[in-house]
Amino acid sequence: MKEFLSKKGVLFQELNVAADEKARNDMVSHTGQMAVPTVAVGNQYIVGFDREKLEKVLH
């Protein structure tokens, strides 16, 4: 995920949901899942590395 976003020139903030309880709770409240990677783009959340969905929300 990090490589994909970097190649696209997308600035991102990485959060360690294993160590950051607030980040983990936010992720679960928005997605209903404990899966990583999870990417938030605006108010959209993408769970897992889904290149097609990422391309759509990044354009």
Score class of each variant (00 low, 15 high):
residue 1 M to K: 05
residue 2 K to G: 07
residue 2 K to Q: 12
residue 2 K to W: 03
residue 3 E to C: 05
residue 6 S to K: 12
residue 7 K to M: 08
residue 8 K to S: 05
residue 8 K to V: 08
residue 8 K to N: 10
residue 8 K to E: 13
residue 8 K to I: 07
residue 8 K to W: 04
residue 9 G to C: 04
residue 9 G to V: 06
residue 9 G to R: 02
residue 11 L to M: 03
residue 11 L to V: 05
residue 11 L to T: 09
residue 11 L to Y: 00
residue 11 L to F: 03
residue 12 F to V: 06
residue 12 F to K: 03
residue 12 F to N: 04
residue 13 Q to K: 12
residue 13 Q to M: 06
residue 14 E to M: 03
residue 14 E to D: 08
residue 14 E to Q: 06
residue 15 L to Q: 03
residue 15 L to V: 00
residue 16 N to I: 03
residue 16 N to F: 01
residue 17 V to A: 02
residue 17 V to S: 00
residue 17 V to Q: 01
residue 17 V to K: 01
residue 18 A to L: 08
residue 18 A to H: 03
residue 18 A to N: 10
residue 18 A to W: 05
residue 19 A to M: 07
residue 19 A to L: 10
residue 20 D to P: 02
residue 20 D to T: 09
residue 20 D to W: 01
residue 22 K to D: 08
residue 22 K to Q: 07
residue 22 K to H: 00
residue 22 K to G: 01
residue 23 A to R: 01
residue 23 A to T: 03
residue 23 A to L: 00
residue 24 R to H: 04
residue 24 R to E: 05
residue 24 R to Y: 03
residue 25 N to L: 03
residue 25 N to H: 00
residue 26 D to Q: 07
residue 26 D to N: 07
residue 26 D to E: 11
residue 27 M to D: 06
residue 27 M to E: 09
residue 28 V to G: 00
residue 28 V to P: 00
residue 28 V to C: 01
residue 29 S to C: 10
residue 30 H to S: 14
residue 30 H to F: 10
residue 30 H to E: 11
residue 30 H to R: 14
residue 30 H to Q: 14
residue 31 T to R: 01
residue 31 T to F: 01
residue 31 T to L: 02
residue 32 G to P: 10
residue 32 G to C: 13
residue 32 G to A: 14
residue 32 G to N: 13
residue 32 G to L: 14
residue 33 Q to R: 12
residue 34 M to A: 13
residue 34 M to E: 14
residue 35 A to F: 13
residue 35 A to K: 15
residue 35 A to M: 15
residue 35 A to W: 10
residue 35 A to H: 12
residue 35 A to D: 15
residue 36 V to I: 15
residue 36 V to L: 06
residue 37 P to L: 08
residue 37 P to N: 09
residue 37 P to F: 06
residue 38 T to S: 13
residue 39 V to S: 13
residue 39 V to T: 15
residue 39 V to E: 08
residue 39 V to N: 04
residue 39 V to I: 15
residue 40 A to R: 14
residue 40 A to T: 03
residue 40 A to N: 05
residue 40 A to V: 08
residue 40 A to Q: 14
residue 40 A to L: 05
residue 41 V to K: 11
residue 42 G to C: 12
residue 42 G to F: 11
residue 42 G to W: 10
residue 44 Q to H: 11
residue 44 Q to G: 01
residue 44 Q to M: 07
residue 44 Q to K: 14
residue 44 Q to S: 10
residue 45 Y to C: 08
residue 45 Y to K: 09
residue 45 Y to M: 12
residue 45 Y to D: 05
residue 47 V to C: 11
residue 47 V to S: 09
residue 47 V to F: 09
residue 48 G to Q: 10
residue 49 F to V: 11
residue 49 F to K: 11
residue 50 D to V: 12
residue 51 R to N: 10
residue 51 R to D: 11
residue 51 R to W: 02
residue 51 R to V: 14
residue 53 K to D: 07
residue 53 K to G: 04
residue 53 K to I: 08
residue 53 K to M: 11
residue 53 K to Y: 05
residue 54 L to Q: 08
residue 54 L to F: 14
residue 54 L to S: 09
residue 54 L to N: 10
residue 55 E to T: 13
residue 55 E to K: 11
residue 55 E to P: 04
residue 55 E to H: 06
residue 55 E to Y: 06
residue 56 K to V: 13
residue 56 K to F: 07
residue 57 V to Y: 10
residue 57 V to A: 11
residue 58 L to P: 12
residue 58 L to C: 11
residue 59 H to W: 03
